[in-house]
Amino acid sequence: MQELLFEASWEKALSTQDRQNIEDIFNETKHFSTSDLLFSTLRVAINHKEALLVTVLVHNFSNQLLTFNNAKVSYYIEGECIAERTFTLSALAIPSKVSMPWTFIFPKGNYIARPSYENGRLEI
């Protein structure tokens, strides 16, 4: 059965409202195991450094540890690749049958400017 875990820094920093939102989305999506990996979008924003922040719930439905070592991650909206970057994230190691929230940061210049970044999907 799928389990929800938070990386240590998330555990400390999450507000009660954000935690509840993540738990609600986890409960809605934890049975969508049509593939080994699924990203459920939680929030998309542009920060003060003009970086695109894509916060997702990463579902590892596989029987193996999921790591991000030189993993090319792309963000698509309506079939168009808006952002792409290669990530090596030593802090993000998701055990088998575990879901964990994470924010992927695409610095200014690594994404296409547009009026809205909503309704997109993250892919490896």
Rank of each mutant, 00 (worst) to 15 (best):
L65Y: 08
I124T: 14
I82R: 01
W102K: 11
N119F: 12
E50H: 15
F104A: 02
N27L: 13
N69V: 06
I105V: 12
K30G: 03
L14V: 04
V73H: 06
F68E: 01
S74H: 06
L4Q: 05
R121E: 12
I124Y: 14
A45G: 03
F104H: 02
F61I: 13
I77P: 00
N60V: 02
I94E: 02
N60Y: 00
N60M: 03
T103Y: 02
F87S: 02
S40Y: 04
Q64E: 09
E118Q: 09
K49I: 11
F106P: 00
Q64W: 01
I77E: 09
L53R: 01
I94R: 01
E3T: 07
L42F: 02
R121G: 10
S35K: 11
Q64K: 14
I22H: 08
E28N: 13
D36E: 10
H31Q: 15
Y117W: 12
I82F: 00
E78V: 13
I46L: 14
S62W: 08
T103G: 08
I82L: 01
M100V: 15
A91T: 12
S99I: 05
E23N: 15
K108E: 05
L52Q: 12
E123Y: 05
H31S: 13
Y75F: 15
S62E: 04
E118C: 09
L92W: 03
R114Q: 13
H31G: 14
Y117E: 11
S99A: 11
S90L: 09
E23K: 14
S62A: 11
L122Y: 07
F6I: 13
V98M: 05
R85V: 05
A71P: 03
L38A: 11
F68C: 03
L122E: 12
K108R: 09
S9R: 14
K108D: 07
I94L: 02
L66T: 04
L5I: 12
T88M: 10
Y76M: 08
T86L: 09
N119W: 14
N27S: 11
L57M: 01
T103Q: 05
S33P: 00
P107N: 06
N70F: 09
R19L: 15
N70C: 07
A113D: 14
L42W: 04
V73D: 04
K97R: 09
F6L: 15
H48L: 06
P101K: 03
A93N: 11
I22F: 10
